[in-house]
Amino acid sequence: MASSHRISRRDFVKAVTATLSGVMGIAMGIPIISYLIDPALNVQSSEAWIPLGPLDGYPIGTPTAFSFTRSNINGWEKTVNSYGGFILRKSESESDILALSNRCTHLSCSVNWNEEREEYVCPCHDAQFDIEGEVNAGPPPHALDHFETKVEEGTLSVKFPAVLAHEG
């Protein structure tokens, strides 16, 4: 080469090709990686307060059933799930409320309140829970889950999802 400052046509073409390939690689690489990992970055919180109507509608001392549905959107697919439970007002106080999930902790069947036996009974394997949700008999590993509750302007709400009996 005559002078080290001169660049041959061949080297110039090589450098331009390499640069353009690099630019194209980055310009396409970033969108493609974002595209692939996008669902992993959009984690939607499923927590929500579910209003259950006026607190006056729930009698004191007797478990009263409630139910609600939650929809879940994954991409283009929407699934709707039903949830339910029982509100037990132990006294007039707005803080003295127990909201139990009706999901049996054994295999997730729905338990029912049996007025005569004064306990929740699961129709699947005859699990029995007392009025506070503790296990009386049967296969369940632990007590019924419960919902956090709050009362605002006379309206009772529960916090979804239900939590383990001994948490929160």
Binding site: P31, I32, S34, Y35, D38, P39, L41, G75, W76, E77
Partner: peptide, 17 residues
């Protein structure tokens, strides 16, 4: 149809791909 709507509107750079 819905999956393409999802690609076009919700996935990052889905419109580009």
């Amino acid at each position: 149809y819905d999956s393409i709507q999802y690609i076009m509107n919700d996935v990052a750079f889905g419109w580009l791909i």
